[in-house]
Computed example of a mutant assay.
Amino acid sequence: MRGMSASARATVARGPVPALDLSADPVELTAALVDVPSVSGEEGALADAVEEALRAQAPTFELLRSGNAVLARTNGDRPTRVLLAGHLDTVPIADNVPSHREGDRIYGCGTSDMKSGDAMIAHLAATIDDPAHELTLVFYDCEEVEAARNGLGRIEREHRDWLQADLAVLAEPTDGAVEAGCQGTLRAVVRTTGRRAHSARSWLGENAIHAAAPILRRLNEYRPRQVDIDGCVYREGLQAVRIEGGVAGNVVPDEACVTVNFRFAPDRTPEQAADHVREVFDHAPLEITDSAAGALPGLHAPAAKAFLAATGARPVAKYGWTDVSRFAALGIPAINFGPGDPNLAHTREEFVNIDRITRCTELLRRYLTSAGR
């Protein structure tokens, strides 16, 4: 197989690349994407299909393959650049592939999160002849797993110039709304200690699980902050998400751990969020195990204003963390906008409403062809 491209060699190993018609109705394209399984780390077949379709049906785009990510961009002389991004991977399949259609819905793994968004982006790339902006497309891998494997992070490290833009639109499921920015997230483990003893002589020990009661009480009494940023209201939350403790059925435990998750508004830095969690627990010993910054709405950027004007959308806060945070850290305004319903993401009964695919595609087309002109 010498002389063959990396994608061609991968195709030989995986079998024929499924043919995608990017100019077809994005509803049908959504179903076609869902029918190519792409669990995190196994996106190769779908990446091959997207790459081959773009190469054949969007010839004005320069292409780059990075692992199981596919990037494409125009290189004209328009004054602004818009980046459209979507991840190709899904959570593990739950007997919900291939897709099927019932009434005004398409069911299947990834329909909502986020192959309907990918279909929207790919369809517009192939069917817009004269966009108002230079366009960059980023179809990336491993979003649904640990951050260290995220394909967007790899692209940032290895191909930073491909991420330059005046606005990034991440096609995460928003049910057709514009969700601005995102919350930050932090996980911490609060530990309590005691003295081990036989449970029949419990007075000789100190129960570490019982000692966790004040921690749970503080969580139960916690009142989350609400913050208005650019007209978007972010509500914070601090919750216990795991409790571990106990040695055996006849032993007073000498250690217990309470894992907490703090979802914080993007006006806090991760360091400020950690300080806040420590204050809540009265500076009890705790370990920060994971932390990621949020993203401010960025709605004052000219390109973001133009998007809102062209679509007529009213922005709301994004609850949860998304890769808009990565763009915000690079100084690129970014919004979440996609046809999927975030409440259906990762569920066995995941589906997307057909009218949302059509409507979101129309609105994004309106912006890409008229904004700034």
Rank of each mutant, 00 (worst) to 15 (best):
R105V: 00
G338P: 03
A85T: 09
V36M: 09
D230H: 10
D48Q: 13
P339Q: 12
V145I: 14
V258H: 05
F327E: 02
A293P: 01
I243D: 00
A58S: 13
L29N: 03
H133M: 02
S7K: 02
G205S: 05
A58I: 09
N336R: 03
N150D: 14
E255K: 11
P16T: 12
D290P: 00
V17T: 15
V50S: 12
A6V: 14
F307S: 05
N250S: 14
D89K: 01
T192Q: 07
P173M: 09
T259Q: 10
L286K: 02
T60N: 07
P224Y: 13
C142L: 06
A188L: 05
I93D: 09
T193I: 00
I288G: 06
R348D: 13
A328D: 13
D129M: 02
P98T: 08
F61W: 04
V324A: 12
A58Y: 08
E51F: 14
A47K: 04
G184K: 03
P214Y: 04
A24Q: 15
A85M: 08
T269A: 04
R105M: 08
A147W: 11
G320W: 05
P18K: 07
P315R: 06
A309L: 09
C142H: 09
Y367N: 05
I106C: 11
R373E: 13
N150Q: 07
R223I: 11
A165Y: 06
A345N: 10
G194N: 09
P342C: 08
A310P: 00
E43T: 06
Q57N: 12
V70D: 05
R356A: 13
T11D: 12
F351P: 00
D175C: 00
R73M: 04
A72T: 01
N150K: 05
F139G: 06
R101N: 02
R154Q: 10
L83G: 04
E221M: 03
M120L: 15
L167M: 07
D35N: 15
E236G: 03
H87P: 00
A19P: 00
A94L: 15
G67N: 09
A168R: 03
A19H: 12
D166I: 06
A310E: 11
V27F: 10
G3P: 06
G76Q: 04
L330E: 06
Q226S: 15
S38F: 07
A31R: 12
A58E: 12
G249H: 03
P92V: 08
R225H: 11
A53N: 09
R365T: 10
V190E: 06
Y234V: 01
G15E: 02
R201F: 10
C257G: 00
Q239Y: 08
S5E: 14
D166M: 05
R160H: 14
G110F: 11
C109T: 08
A303P: 00
V233R: 14
Y319Q: 14
L186N: 07
V233T: 15
L344N: 07
D175Y: 05
A274Q: 12
F264K: 03
T111D: 10
T322Q: 04
R73Y: 07
